[in-house]
Structures are given as C-alpha cells and as structure tokens.
Design a protein around this nucleic acid. Structure first.
Lengths: 191, 191
DNA sequence: GTTTTACAAACGAACGTTCGTTTGTTAAGG
DNA sequence: CCTTAACAAACGAACGTTCGTTTGTAAAAC
C-alpha cells in the first residue's frame, strides 16, 4: 500500500474525467467522491466549490491548446509546414488529454458568463493562429488565391475537434496516421 | 388572443430548444414549465417523464438525418453529385432544426443504454451512406484510388456536424455558400 | 529519541434547496 | 357534457455545501 490519500490534483483530474463522461450537471459531488473513495463532503477539503473544478479543467484545456499553438508558431517554415505543426500539436493535445479536452469543448458553456467569455476569447485567439497561417500561405502563393482563411480554419478545426468523439486509444489508427490524414486533407483542399 | 394553451408538440419543441442551450441535466422541469408559461408539474399533463422528452427529441434528430440521406440516395448520379446531395441535405437539417440537432448530437449520450444504442446504430447507418458513396466514387475512378472511405466520411461528417457550433442564422454565410464550401472542400480532398 | 504541535485529509451528520414526479381539483374548449 | 390542460400542494430523493470532529503524518521542541 503506497498511499491511499488523495491530493487536489487527483480531485481535479477525476472531475475532468467524469465531466467528460457524464457532463458537468450529470456529475454530482457524491458521484465524484465515490470515484475517489471519498464522501462528497470530503472534496471540500481540496476545493471551494464544484464550479471551481470546472473552471480549473476548462482553463487547463485552453492553456494546452494555446501552448501547443505557441510552440508550432515559434519555429519558422512554409505555411504548409506550419499548418502541419499546428495540426500535429492539436492531435497531440486531444490524444494525450482526452478528458480535459472533452470537458473543455463540451462543458465550458456551463460556466457563468465571466468565465465563459474568457474561454471564448481563448478559442478565438487559437483559431486566429490557423487563420493567420492559412492567410500567409495564400499570400505566399502556397495555397489557392480564392481560399477563404476563415472558413478553411473552421473546417480544419472541425475535423480536429471531432477527434474527441471518435478516437479510441486502441483503435486501428495511430497518432501519425491521424496527423497525416488530416494534414493531407487540409492541404488538398487548400492547394 | 388565438389560444393560450400548450400542446404536446409545444412541450417537445421547447424541451429541444432548452436541452440544446443548457443541456439535458442543466434543464429542470420547472425551467421548462416557466418557458411555456406553466408550472413544472403541469408538463405531466402532456408527457410521462423527463427522459421521454429527450428520447423524442433525439429520435426526431435521427429520423431527420436518415430521411435526408434516403432522399439523397434515391436519385442517381455520379458519386460526386450524390456526395453533394448528402452534404446539402445535412446542411438543411442542421440549419432548419438547429435545436433538435444540437440535442441529438450533444445530449443523446445522457440516454440510458437501450435508447442510446439505438441512436448509435442510426448514426452508423447514416455514416455508412457517406462511406458507400465515397467507395463507389473510388471504384468508378471519380476519386483517388488511395482514398480511405471510412476516414473521409468521418472528416466530412466532422465538418457537417460542427456547423451546429458556429452557424448563426444572421451571419454572413448563407446556406448555399456553406454547402458549396463544404462540397468543394470534400471534393478537393478526394480528387 | 521521544513528545508535542501543526496541518491536511477525510468523516458523518445536517442544512436549506431543488429535483422529478404524483395527486386531487379546477377551469376551459370543442 | 366531457375531455384536456393547467393548477396547487405535496412527496421522497438528491443536490451542493457547511460544520464540528477525527485521523494520519510530519516537523518542531524538548
């Protein structure tokens, strides 16, 4: 027996998993406690409120995506290469943090206005990275001149975000194949 | 004043709208009643349980998509034309029944195992229509030989289903432009 | 090296509120 | 008149949260 006691990080991680599975409103504090081997009330040794848990998980999701795009944009290369980096980073975030991502994508709207608007801003900033790379690719002649960067970014992000809904860790598609398929599809529709 | 009384269809429609906005577990029967100018308890003059409402809305979503794909497959044409019909039909369903679709896509997982599995079957059948058309296009030489119909169908449906998340009725993109953008993008990545 | 102090984690009971639902009754509408 | 829709009151269960207390562990004081 190593240790049976829970840390705050355990609580947040399990909350992320349960929110992803059953939704924020579909998960009670007693449900969450039971999953950790605790009473619902004991959770309040670690946190101040249920909503704090959602805020924490969603903020982590936002941070993961922004960090990923920051790394992709930090190295230079052609628009096509940078777009592939953005895509690969996004796939990594989804596959390595599936629960956080599901909660970020599906449950953020349950936050109160203040917190939700911060999430919207963060998503807009992230989407802007994709748009910007596409725009540069058009200007540089790498992509067709009549490409609409806004729509193209939305379509690529649609495919990327849908990953959470169908990807299964033990499925027949591994990470590299997924990145390749998405990057190929994106490049094909831009060129 | 024509009539102030509510019908069962009113209740289901309003439930669909509220489930789409706040989620199934985020909508209480008293919330729903208030939206209709009723007490929560009065809803039980129309329905037997809250879950019945979700079942009804989700079933309608499933039916809308299956009917749409049935119509698209009923007329013949090239694979490219049929794919465009499938896409146009899907866009119509999302734009004309946004609330039902949002509930169908996001809240069906809150159903109990029996009802949920029926929804999964229906989605699989729908996806199979896309796969089948793509497969025929590959066989007929309309699409590249190395196209994977399964992945391609998932990508196209990812873009179509994401519509619900960003489409706004008074935005700058009308129905035809959306269908055209998606069909063009799909065709480009298949050809 | 033992005793004391401190702290973080968890308990168990209870709070006030809201949940989905049931019951019995009243008022319209066709 | 009779069916349907709605009301009003209530039910038991579950909700998020608070409270006072207990437990285990680890550092500080002796």
């Amino acid at each position: 027996m190593v240790s049976t006691r829970n840390t705050r990080a355990d609580v947040v991680a399990t909350a992320g998993r349960m929110f992803a599975e059953k939704g924020y409103h579909g998960t009670s504090m007693r449900d969450l406690g039971k999953e950790l081997g605790l009473l619902g009330s004991s959770l309040y040794s670690h946190i101040d409120s249920k909503e704090d848990l959602l805020v924490e998980v969603v903020d982590e999701g936002a941070r993961l995506f922004l960090d990923s795009s920051g790394r992709a944009m930090a190295v230079d290369g052609t628009a096509k290469e940078r777009l592939r980096s953005l895509i690969a980073g996004h796939v990594d975030v989804v596959l390595d943090h599936q629960d956080v991502v599901r909660t970020y994508l599906n449950e953020a709207r349950m936050l109160d206005e203040g917190h939700r608007s911060r999430v919207v801003e963060s998503r807009d900033a992230y989407e802007m990275m994709f748009r910007s790379v596409i725009q540069h690719g058009v200007s540089a002649g790498e992509f067709r001149a009549n490409v609409d960067p806004k729509i193209s970014a939305i379509f690529i992000l649609s495919i990327l975000n849908a990953l959470e809904r169908w990807y299964r860790p033990n499925g027949d598609l591994d990470r590299n194949r997924i990145v390749d398929a998405i990057a190929t599809s994106a490049t094909a529709s831009l060129s």
